[in-house]
Design a protein around this nucleic acid. Sequence first.
DNA 1: GTCCATCTATACCGGACGTTACGAATGTGT
DNA 2: ACACATTCGTAACGTCCGGTATAGATGGAC
Lengths: 196, 196
Amino acid sequence: MAMGRPREFSCEKALDLALQVFWRKGYEGASMADLTEAMGITKPSLYAAFGNKEELFRKALDRYVDGPGGYFQEALKKPTAREVVSHVLYEAAEALTNPDNPPGCLAVQGALSCGDAAETIKQELMARRAKGETDLRTRFERALAENDLPDGADAADLARYISAILQGMAVQAAGGADRGQLRRIADMALRGWPPV
Amino acid sequence: MAMGRPREFSCEKALDLALQVFWRKGYEGASMADLTEAMGITKPSLYAAFGNKEELFRKALDRYVDGPGGYFQEALKKPTAREVVSHVLYEAAEALTNPDNPPGCLAVQGALSCGDAAETIKQELMARRAKGETDLRTRFERALAENDLPDGADAADLARYISAILQGMAVQAAGGADRGQLRRIADMALRGWPPV
DNA sequence: GTCCATCTATACCGGACGTTACGAATGTGT
DNA sequence: ACACATTCGTAACGTCCGGTATAGATGGAC
């Protein structure tokens, strides 16, 4: 099956290393030289394996969503709306300050604003954030149907509210907030939940 | 007094135009070509008047803080903690979606993460966000002394919480949220205030 | 009217950017 | 052992980056 010279590196390991660079420097701030150095491969190897910078970022982003960002989808499986919110907030506090990773959230700081060349990446990240918000809204709609949230509450508004708090925590983490500080933000948000 | 040929453009107008570009594209994403084109001046004029890209950004940032971002300091003057929070949240909802300006907040999206060359700008923006948070904390400490907030509340935690919500609203605005949606986030945050 | 400080515009600098030819190296299938 | 498919490293591509030298234009001071 495998014809020709086998590659000397692991695509998954290289992708994880690229993810670290994009996470720390953003899409625009991460140069190909930064990436190849961190990944331990040369530029032609990178292009052969991953296409180009944009494709590499998208693959790293997929890996982020399934890995360090996986707590979000996990939280949606909790049995009650309150547990969903509690888990997503506290797990975010952990993930956003995991010392093994750059602080903050790739989906927020990967390309919040950018030059023309990165516009499609910015759109992609906007779409990912919108999808997370929609998933949360859908979960809250279920909770409403189960009388797990007060009548008259608006699932879309609640989802946007929680998304905003998560994104605010991400900016705080990028600004140097530590784990305890993020946990106390989660405490306060949860104390007022649901905002009737 | 004024010797030599007078300059043919207004520094303040040019700075406002540069601010728009930095606001929309971020520090890294805004090229000198973008800036000179928007400002209607040539590069040597820009360098003579503003130093270099980094100094230009700092001057635009000062102008942002005193202009479109001025609602923050205004809110601190309100007589009660609740009015401070109410005003800062609702004025943020307006400012972040002002159709005359790019959506979002320059202090958040100007350089949330970046390459090495923009590291000092990132630090500057972190310091500005931290200063806003400290100003809010100081205001809450006054409120505590005036029995305007519940005993035992932590002014620093409250300031960090409100800052996170504001920053989350900024990310929402950058993602396309409209004014009504941001107002409803403010509604919900205010409903649980203070988070005793 | 002349001098001269200052601004404007063209054109260019060295370097970094993302991307790719090319040829040498390497392991598989026959 | 040989041919072949693929990867590897070097070295270079054209383009754009932030920044600047230089020469001409402009208007106040005297």
